[in-house]
Amino acid sequence: MTSKTSALDPARSFQGLLLTLQQFWAAQGCVILQPYDMEVGAGTFHPATTLRSLGPKHWNAAYVQPSRRPKDGRYGENPNRLQHYYQFQVILKPSPSNLQQLYLDSLAAIGVDMALHDIRFVEDDWESPTLGAWGLGWECWCDGMEVSQFTYFQQVAGVECAPISGELTYGLERLAMYVQGVENVYDLNFNGLEGAAKVTYGDVFKQAEQEYSRHNFEHADTAMLVQHFKDAEAECKALLAAGDQHERHTMALPAYDQCIKASHRFNLLDARGVISVTERQSYILRVRELAKACGQAWLKTAGGGAA
């Protein structure tokens, strides 16, 4: 019988890994947030990263963000690819000078032994065309596998960052597969228990992967999605206009929600293969315009550092 503590060993359970990272970063002074309650493509979209990285205020936060990438669905048949997965996101503003060491300490906390494993920082310039954002940093490799992304944000929503935020994004499934030593994501032990009590990642998510793949690739109503995109875009602009009080903005957050919504509708349309190359560019541009406007609005709020 597995004891309760060892069930939460990050090398034994997916949830243990997640909890360990939360503990670790809480101890570093991060606010531990819960996932943002909207469909996003990556943890970066969470306003706790996108918006909070703008403006002069210091901010340290960590959270798990379920992320949806409709195009990556494989009907539950590919051992590595998922249309829904978890990212663990850390944002530290300003980036502390020992950020690399903190990251390595967090790996050690989840059981990666630096005397046995080869950790590498391999160049990876990050850019999000839809968010109008870019930064420099690395892919972090553990024995040749990319397990995290490490970025110093330089620009977000078209605005130069100052101070600079350091962003860490852990691919939780990959890390868990690594520390648990499994080859197939669906075989991950989710709760760290054995026998009848054991719950795998497949038990939790395989059906969802199959159903959402069908939805994303075959059944999502494209006409409706196009309309939703337009609606979200219009609503975003309307809220930006309504909340704009010259020196201040009173609705940056609700406006940004609509930007997130538009972005996800675009991802769904893209997965359905109905967006041509030229249209694709124009959709990305439209989302970016929204993101930029939301970033500008945020800078006129208290959270964005406006007096």
């Binding site: 300003p94 930064g135 100052a162 101070p163 600079i164």
Partner: peptide
């Protein structure tokens, strides 16, 4: 390509 970091000004 170069970058800024930490508590930097623009």
């Amino acid at each position: 390509r170069s970058m800024r970091w930490g508590d930097t000004i623009a």
